[in-house]
Design a binder for these strands. Structure first.
Length: 574
RNA sequence: GCCUCUGUAGCUCAGUGGACAGAGCAGCGGUCUUCUAAACCGUUGGUCGCAGGUUCGAGUCCUGCCAGGGGCGCCA
């Protein structure tokens, strides 16, 4: 698709260069100033602020704007150019061009809004990455939705995208999970054993234990915790994948921590960091104060292996290998990201919770210590999300209990069951990642009739309704004359053409929520038009009806595209 | 204490340094004999947390405060 603002900017640059050649404008480097849609339609469809050039040109902005307007090459999409104080060049799109876009959109179909900026480039999105120690929670869900939307937007921008899930299965936590399952299994066999406080107490392990008994009877009694760890990991992953699939999320690759031990990447990374002089052995880190040293002495630690991350701006050095010889979580994390960089993605997006902020900084330091350039990696930090409900007693919102039990809305499965996959996707997406999110369970359920989710989907449903009715009446848009379209329809097309720019911005700023707001704005533009612009109405002449039917076909394409970009369904009826 | 995110209408939130700050809920008043009204039309509502600064221009950038969330582990 043609990006009109880009073409407009290029034309302006030509006009400015022309003015410079003629000596009407002093010679200076012309900076890239974006043209954007103004807030008011009376100010046109694209606006360029020449004020930004006034200083370099040492001319009044209004004069520069006039020079641009006079020297602008002919553009097929422009109807008129206006100059407005203090120095705007405003472009009005031609009606003829807009009318032609109706067929262009229909022809583009699923590819509408697709860009070339990522052509021949690869991108990776790593998201969810929850350890397989339990179900997907509401917190993971935000990362899942944001990451998948980011991947879809990158695809729309032309990138070849890989969706990856990284998980830690080598540390203590998975061992505890295995031991917890072993105890649950023995309980199922009638043994009187108790879980320790640091074991996993969730009921779901009881169910897994029961399943193991049903399958193997007492056969696993003396197999040891390794067997149970394996069983737990595999069962948890089946569950996680099923949950994610319920909101249309599927990863291309799963990358686990254990493999980094098997292929020795973590030891290679450590050796390389050591070779670069960033590793040392000590009981406490080099900058430790008296309190920290006293603390270490109290714990009676043997020397550990430290990474001098302070060399790269960290606030303190970090342990890579604990005094018991086991690596911390950080070392494999560094090795994993090093491998990610080696794989050569042009962009590698990492979707993390904001509680991982410090960890991500350390990994970044680690990559630099390896002599790698971390710039291809971009991290989206999602702020915390919690399920809340209104408490009449307290007179304020109250967090839903963080229980793993069904019905407490803490898991993705519960959320989907109580609302819908589409509602979960929309509400998790329609917020800046930088904002905390309170997912109001009751509201999404109770007020579902006035939900933006259905407001957007209904736009598509209404189009589908027209098509059904038209088919029944044997009415078609064959031979439609699009000059019959009115201002309302063209207004919608104008806005729809901004999709490419929205995708570009969302990708450039790593803010997939922009697409959700755009979809809502477009739906808000659509519904009043639907009311006014009838197709199958006795008073509508056949010619106009044909053109309008064609228009609604384009609108349906646009909404279907938007819903797919958000991972939502486009229902024919509601 | 240090790092980081947030503070915009009664509520939930948008707002690439540009023109007069927007939307949805909630409130008030209207609209279905013709493609499903999960919709539409009208209307009320703002010292953009506070104070400075940069700029032709600041809700947006910088500094300092105030308030709230998250992080600062030989856990993952």
């Amino acid at each position: 698709m043609k990006q009109l603002n880009r073409e407009f900017e290029i034309a302006i640059k030509k006009a400015l260069a022309g003015a410079q050649n003629r000596g009407d404008l002093p010679v200076f480097d012309i900076p890239r100033i974006p043209a954007s849609p103004p807030k008011r339609s009376s100010q046109g469809d694209l606006s360029y602020p020449a004020m930004a050039l006034a200083k370099a040109a040492r001319m009044s902005p209004l004069e520069i704007a006039k020079l641009i307007a006079a020297g602008l090459p002919k553009l097929d999409f422009v109807e008129t150019i206006e100059v407005a104080p203090p120095g705007f060049v405003n472009c009005f799109l031609s009606r003829d061009y807009l009318r032609r876009q109706v067929d262009t959109i229909i022809a583009a179909g699923e590819g509408f809004g697709r860009l070339e900026i990522g052509a021949c480039k690869t991108a990776q999105v790593e998201f969810v990455s929850a350890n397989p120690s339990g179900p997907i929670t509401i917190g993971h869900t935000r990362g899942a939705v944001v990451g998948d939307a980011m991947a879809r937007l990158l695809e729309a921008a032309g990138y070849t995208v890989q969706r990856e899930y990284y998980y830690n299965n080598a540390g203590n936590q998975m061992i505890l999970l295995g031991k917890s399952l072993e105890l649950r299994y023995r309980q199922q066999l009638g043994e009187s054993v108790d879980l320790a406080p640091d074991h996993y107490h969730g009921d779901y392990l009881v169910e897994v234990a029961a399943a193991l008994v049903a399958e193997h009877g007492e056969g696993l009694r003396d197999k040891g915790w390794e067997t149970f760890k394996q069983a737990a990991e595999s069962r948890m992953f089946d569950w996680i994948k099923r949950s994610l699939a319920s909101i249309d999320i599927k990863h291309d690759a799963f990358y686990n921590e254990t493999s980094l031990f098997e292929d020795e990447r973590i030891w290679q990374a450590l050796a390389a960091m050591r070779g670069n002089g960033h590793i040392y052995e000590a009981a406490y880190w080099e900058g430790a104060d008296a309190a920290e040293i006293a603390d270490v002495k109290a714990k009676d630690y043997l020397p550990a292996t430290w990474f001098r991350s302070t060399s790269f701006g960290d606030e303190k050095d970090r342990v890579m290998v604990k005094s018991d010889g086991a690596p911390t979580y950080t070392l494999p994390d560094i090795a994993y990201h090093a491998h990610k960089l080696e794989r050569g993605f042009d962009i590698a997006v990492n979707v993390l919770g904001s509680d991982h902020f410090s960890q991500a900084q350390v990994v970044r330091c680690g990559l630099m210590a390896l002599g790698l350039d971390p710039t291809p990696i971009h991290v989206i930090f999602n702020q915390m999300v919690r399920a809340v409900r209104w408490s009449a007693e307290l007179g304020e919102y109250e967090a839903v209990k963080q229980s793993k039990r069904a019905g407490d809305f803490d898991t993705l499965d519960d959320l989907v069951e109580m609302t819908s996959a589409d509602a979960v996707r929309y509400h998790m997406l329609a917020r800046s990642p930088n904002s905390q999110l309170d997912f109001d369970v009751d509201k999404v359920v109770r007020q579902s009739n006035e939900n933006p989710v259905y407001y957007i989907q209904n736009a598509y449903v209404r189009c589908a309704g027209i098509f059904r009715e038209a088919e029944e009446r044997g009415f078609s848009d064959a031979g439609a004359d699009l000059s019959e379209l009115g201002e309302d329809e063209l207004c919608f097309i104008r806005k729809a053409l901004e999709l490419g720019n929205v995708i570009e911005q969302a990708v450039a700023s790593f803010e997939p929520h922009k697409i959700a707001f755009f979809a809502h704005e477009l739906a808000a533009l659509f519904h009043p038009i639907y009311d006014r612009v009838r197709v199958l109405h006795s008073e509508v002449p056949a010619g106009a009806a044909k053109a309008r039917l064609r228009f609604y076909r384009a609108a349906a394409v646009v909404f279907q595209r938007l819903l797919r970009l958000m991972g939502m369904s486009a229902p024919e009826r509601m």
